[in-house]
Structure formats: structure tokens, C-alpha cells
Design a protein around this nucleic acid. Structure first.
Lengths: 196, 196
DNA sequence: CTATTAATCAAACGAACGTTCGTTTAATTA
DNA sequence: TAATTAAACGAACGTTCGTTTGATTAATAG
């Protein structure tokens, strides 16, 4: 056999990326074999190389796509004129919602940095810091405006983002709470802590 | 050659576990090969099997040891009589300090669950939940005592632990802040949030 | 001093890995 | 309809993986 009936290159490429996300999320990048990936797409292992330069390049592409899209989506939504509290609440809501909806992307971006070749790693790390800068800016504006007490911006940003991203690792669609309720809990925690 | 001069089985076993932690932290479990592990110890690959049943069992042992020791160490330190705020502050300090000092263990326990065989995974997950229950209890006592406003205990515990564990992934010993300063920032964030 | 046990080496195993390549078939263009 | 290009197959490549085994040497016990 050779070319299969109804096969379209663009569709296969899309299917490869989707299957890769699914498998890497479930098993990890190193544990995913190209034969598993190919089987998930319904194709032979060698055929993947029509669409992908190498396994490493595939991981790089997935991570980069995710980071770029994350940054773009927040920039589209950001309301620069608003007060720091509203902006912070908006950031919390955006981050949780966006991450829950793209669980696989997030798990990959957070767990597979080690598997990424050094040539690519710096790129992803830079983009991540670029995204985190959005939160640092909100906090900084809040402190300057006297709305937030003085706090170490770098540590606070790391801490808040770790908290928010963590949702991806326990959230279940059929769980007890809705996404809105989860967002609400986190907004309160970020703003007022447990003492309130 | 065969048995080397001055070789002691117990020492080799210790060295194997230490080297495994180091390599898994750096490269991930799947990416670490037994030949790399053996080289780090200064031994041939086959020799590792005198001390380890299989690669999978090695990972299981590392994770289980870490979870058991984490639970035990908190129980030793826990002050049950104190007020919820003090207990919460103590928990934050303990968790950060313990995790920073055992970075490799923590990275492994948090990143390699997927690589753990199903037979073992439930065990580790149960132990993790057991540790998290300590925090839930503190929060619950605080809410009952009227010191903390009502909050979803499960989500709050997940959120706080994610925040605290996150320190492991950016902390550097030669960084700008000391561990005590980092703990301080986190205690304030957990208790009062950014608004204060 | 001898027998036994502990610890390691060195070589090999089959299986699976990522990747390459020549061939074959489907779709498109001329 | 004939020629060309797109898409996939299927077999093979050399390499590396986790693991097993039997020989070999060091330490210990009788």
C-alpha cells in the first residue's frame, strides 16, 4: 500500500500535533514513541517525518506555539486603564480558564522543559518570563498606587502563578465545583489570603 | 576484573539512590539510562541489579521514601495546641524549607508520577493526600474558630501547596533572597493576600 | 589456611528506539 | 489522457535500551 484514499497533508499534520499533545500529556515526552504517535494518527512511523523534522523539533514546536498563544490571548484581553484590583482579578480568571481549557499544552510546557534541547530552551524560558511580567506589572502598579502593601514582586508573581497553574493538575470537569467557583476561590486567596 | 578493593554493598546502594535522584531530577526518569546511572556510581550497568529489582522499582522506592519522610517530619514538628494562624505559618515555613532542602526528591515526586507503574501510583497518591490533610485540618480549625472566613478547604489546600511547592522550581541558593525572606513573603501571601 | 559469601565485571540478550529510503498509490495538473 | 506531485507504506538501518548470566576477585568466617 501507499497513499491512502482521502488523505490530505494538512489534516495529517494537525492530527499528528493533536495526538502528540495527548500522548505527551499522558506519558511524558521521552516515554512517547513515534510508533505510538503514528498509531494514534493511523499511519506508519516513518510517515510522521513528512511533517516533522525530528522528535525534538516536535516538542519545541508544541511548546513555542503554546507560549505564543498564551501571551497573545492575554494581551487581547488586558484592560490597561482599569484599577489594579480589577486587573488582578481579571488575570486570575484568565489564567485559570485558559489553562484548564488547554490542560495538555500546560502540562507539556511545565513538565517537559527538561526534555527540550538546549538550543530551544532559552526561547521558551524567555517567553514564560515575558508572560509573568504581565502579572508583575499589575502588582507593581498596585503597590505604586498604594492599593497593595509592599511585596517582593518577583516572588509574589512566581507564587501566584504557581498557585493558579496548579489547578490544571487536580481539576476534573465532573468535579464538585464549576470553573467559575474555582476562580472565585482563587481570586479571594490571591487578594485577601485565608485571614481575609 | 570482578569485586573491587574496598567495595561495600551498603555504600554502593546508597550511592545508587543518590545518583538516581540527581540524574532523574536533571533529565527525567525515562531519559536516565542505567548505564548513565552506573557510570555516576562508578560501576557497570549490570551491577546495579544487585541492589535494585528493576528501573521501575527504583523510582517507586524513591517516591515512597520521600512521601513517608515528608509526613513523618511534619508530624514531628506539628504543634497541635497552638492557634490556627501560628500553625498555618509553621506549615508554610516547614513546607518551603523542607522542599528546598530536598529539591531532587520533590521534583521527582511531582514530575514523575506519570512514569510510575499503576501498581505503585495509588500508594503515592494516597500518601500525598494524607500530607495535604494536615493543611486542610489547619484551615478547617481556623474556619471553625472564626479566625478564617469560610473557604473551600480542598481548593484552598491545593492552591496553597501548589504555591509553596513552586518555590523548588525557581529557588537558587545564590539568589537575591534568603530562605527566611522567601518564607516571610509566602506567609504574608497565604494569610493576607496581596491586598493585606 | 581454607571455604564461603559478597561484590563486581564483562559480555551478551532480544526488544525497541528514532530515523532513512525506495516504492507504491491517490490526487492534481497540463 | 498523460505526466507530475502529494501522501503514505513497509522494510530496514545502526544504536541503545533494560536486563540476565557466568566468571572472577575481595572480604569474611571457620
Amino acid at each position: 500500500m501507499a497513499r491512502t484514499k482521502g488523505s490530505v497533508g494538512a489534516d495529517t499534520k494537525t492530527a499528528i500535533y493533536a495526538a502528540a499533545k495527548k500522548l505527551i500529556e499522558a506519558k511524558g515526552f521521552e516515554a512517547m514513541t513515534l510508533r505510538q504517535l503514528a498509531a494514534e494518527v493511523g499511519v506508519q512511523a516513518g510517515s510522521v517525518y513528512r511533517y516533522v523534522e525530528s522528535k525534538d523539533e516536535l516538542l519545541q514546536a508544541l511548546m513555542n506555539q503554546h507560549m505564543i498563544s498564551l501571551i497573545e490571548n492575554w494581551e487581547k484581553l488586558e484592560g490597561k486603564g482599569e484599577d489594579p484590583v480589577s486587573r488582578l482579578k481579571a488575570f486570575v480568571a484568565f489564567h485559570i480558564r485558559y489553562h484548564i481549557e488547554r490542560r495538555a499544552d500546560v502540562v507539556i510546557a511545565n513538565l517537559e522543559l527538561r526534555s527540550l534541547g538546549e538550543e530551544y530552551r532559552a526561547d521558551v524560558v524567555t517567553k514564560r518570563s515575558q508572560y509573568e511580567a504581565n502579572l508583575r506589572r499589575i502588582l507593581s502598579d498596585g503597590v505604586k498606587a498604594g492599593v497593595f502593601p509592599k511585596v517582593d514582586l518577583e516572588v509574589a508573581a512566581f507564587a501566584i502563578i504557581a498557585m493558579l497553574t496548579g489547578v490544571c493538575f487536580w481539576y476534573r470537569p465532573d468535579g464538585r465545583l464549576s470553573i467559575d467557583e474555582i476562580i472565585d476561590v482563587h481570586q479571594k486567596l490571591v487578594l485577601q489570603g485565608v485571614v481575609g
